[in-house]
């Protein structure tokens, strides 16, 4: 029962206030989420979540399968309706939010460069497609058809697409899912580069990469933020040596069991 769950973190502050405070030192956060609730019928996928994401930082959403990560990031992208609360996104930019879905896919009849050019044209701004392709490491295959790309390359194309038009907020849903270690490392480097120009919100199960790139980690369990801090502080507060152990500690102490949830809610 959600009522019985506490939001207190290890140091006694509430997780939500910690989420808001961790990166809220910046004067103007790029993203402000307050008291967000998203439900599908009786199933509450995101339950009273608040946090901010500051410009130039990487915030990672972690948690068990079914914890609500994908629903939360889709709500931030305005792709699902919210039942309560608010999401304040950037308004001044031509394209306020860049988004990489969990399973990016593109029209197979087009090449890498043509696909990015289409999205660039939608922004109405002049976009250096070659630079966007090179940025994610697809500079060697701009003329390759999308249906001839590997899964990893398609994901890189998805990341390039998410940055077209220089959105101030970039949302990446499991950008390294299913990738080999080298590609995973490359994606992590790309995300770090993105944070030079934007606020980045990432969902991930790759806690090693999260530990390396995250300025702020939001631990989600059954739709609620149960901890929010930098990787180092989360480890310190749980007395663990790595983020994986810290998350296990936090989620286990919250739920006492492995969370299960409909894959549609958070695949």
């Amino acid at each position: 029962m959600t009522d019985e769950r506490t939001e207190d973190t290890a140091d006694g502050t509430t997780a939500e206030s910690a989420a808001t405070d961790t990166v809220a030192d910046a004067a103007d956060p790029t993203l402000v989420v307050e008291d967000l609730v998203v439900a599908f019928g009786d199933l509450v996928a995101v339950d009273d979540v608040s946090f901010t994401v500051a410009p130039g930082t990487v915030t990672c959403l972690v948690g068990p399968n079914g914890s609500g990560k994908t629903t939360l990031i889709r709500a931030v992208a305005d792709l699902v309706g919210i039942d309560h609360g608010s999401v304040e996104r950037p308004e001044s930019a031509t394209r306020p939010v860049g988004y990489l879905p969990q399973a990016p896919a593109f029209r197979p009849q087009f090449t890498v460069a043509e696909t990015l050019q289409f999205y660039a044209d939608l922004t109405g701004e002049s976009v250096d497609v070659d630079a966007a392709v090179n940025r994610v490491g697809l500079g060697g295959v701009p003329d390759r058809r999308v249906d001839a790309l590997s899964g990893g390359m398609t994901r890189l194309l998805g990341i390039a697409q998410a940055t077209v038009g220089d959105p101030p907020l970039v949302l990446l849903d499991e950008p390294s899912s299913g990738l080999d270690p080298m590609m995973t490392r490359h994606v992590a480097d790309v995300i770090t580069d993105l944070a030079a120009d934007a606020a980045v919100l990432v969902t991930s199960h790759d806690l090693t990469a999260v530990e390396r790139i995250a300025d702020q980690v939001l631990v989600l369990d059954r739709g609620r933020i149960v901890a929010a801090d930098s990787p180092a502080k989360l480890q310190a507060s749980t007395g663990t040596d790595d983020l994986e152990s810290a998350m296990s500690e936090l989620v286990a102490s919250e739920s006492g069991q492995v969370a299960t949830r409909d894959a549609e809610v958070d695949g």
Binding site: R74, A77, D78, L79, T94, R95, V97, G98, Y99, P101, A103, P104, A105, F106, R107, Y119, L122, T123, G124, G158, Q161, G165
Partner: peptide
């Protein structure tokens, strides 16, 4: 394909 959601994030 899921691409429609991506398109929605454009202006």
């Amino acid at each position: 394909r899921g691409e429609l959601e991506t398109i929605q994030t454009y202006p």
